[in-house]
Design a protein around this nucleic acid. Structure first.
Lengths: 155, 155
DNA sequence: TGTGTCGGTTGCAAATCGAAACCGACTCTA
DNA sequence: TAGAGTCGGTTTCGATTTGCAACCGACACA
């Protein structure tokens, strides 16, 4: 896992971090996944300042992660729903939950668990190799140049 | 996936977001996973201001994610290595990479790929149910109260 | 006519950010 | 032995971002 010789500009990770890599946005996403849709609801649950919440919602909508749709007229009221793109963020949130549960949990165990609808298992999903299906950790993987990689001069 | 009736204080996700949920910390972690260990190296690759990097490294060390160890005396020089706790953050970074590759990628494909050492598959790991082994997405899972859950009055 | 809800916007003080300069302790070169 | 360079930071400073609180329009309900 050593290859200091890659260009990292425009790294996929960096791009994602730019969009969802702050505490406030993650809190909003958590509530969205938990079913919150309305401004007031999101504000109560996250505890964010209203202007910050408004700002984050606008940015999430702008990035196509949430969709702002009117759910009533007179007075106009809007709600924010996860798009497909937003739903794809699920593995990241699961990752955060799993790590927190393992390393930062209070004594009483996690506040929230998740259940696999089809088989009923109550446990957080794990990473597995899509080729062989075996569970994997960082140690089992190594980084290699991707199709878009640009090698950098080493000297 | 609707249950606005949970207490979320001290949520595992929130705790984790507090620690690694900012762009700068994520960049440092990315480089750590790519093998960078020294201050100057981390500074160059992340492009962070030196004071910010110093601050993040201190916080990561304080949270037990990186370990600061002297690798030479006279003059004293230190390097930062991932601990076990830090290595456990891998699924989160994979999640960020995967999402970015799918939704924010440039035309040329990802800059970096990962390879499963034992079977050789070059692909990002996917989430799977630890019970039945089936790949899962957000739609396949539902939230349920965990062992530490505290139900809230619905009023 | 008054009170409350909802979805924001505005103003302001405080915290946080990045760039650049500086620093001690050393090594290497001439 | 003087000068330049490396390494791992700290300090300073101006600009951006943050949270808090107050305010707002449009409506519902009594």
């Amino acid at each position: 896992m050593v290859w200091e010789t890659f260009e990292r500009d425009n790294c996929a990770l960096e791009a994602t971090a730019e969009i969802v890599g702050d505490r406030q946005t993650l809190l909003v996403l958590r509530e969205s996944f938990l079913g919150a849709r309305r401004f007031g609801e999101l504000q109560r649950q996250t505890g964010l300042a209203r202007n910050i919440l408004a700002d984050r919602l606008q940015s999430l909508v702008g990035n196509g992660i949430l969709e702002r749709r009117r759910y009533q007229e007179r007075p106009e009221r809007f709600e924010y729903r996860l798009t497909e793109k937003g739903i794809d963020l699920y593995p990241i949130l699961i990752g955060l939950m799993e790590w927190g549960a393992k390393h930062e949990a209070g004594g009483e165990g996690p506040l929230v668990s998740v259940r696999h609808k089809t088989c009923g298992t109550v446990a957080l999903p794990r990473l597995a190799c899509p080729g062989c299906g075996e569970p994997v950790t960082a140690r089992d993987m190594e980084a290699v140049p991707g199709p878009g990689a640009v090698l950098r001069e080493t000297a």
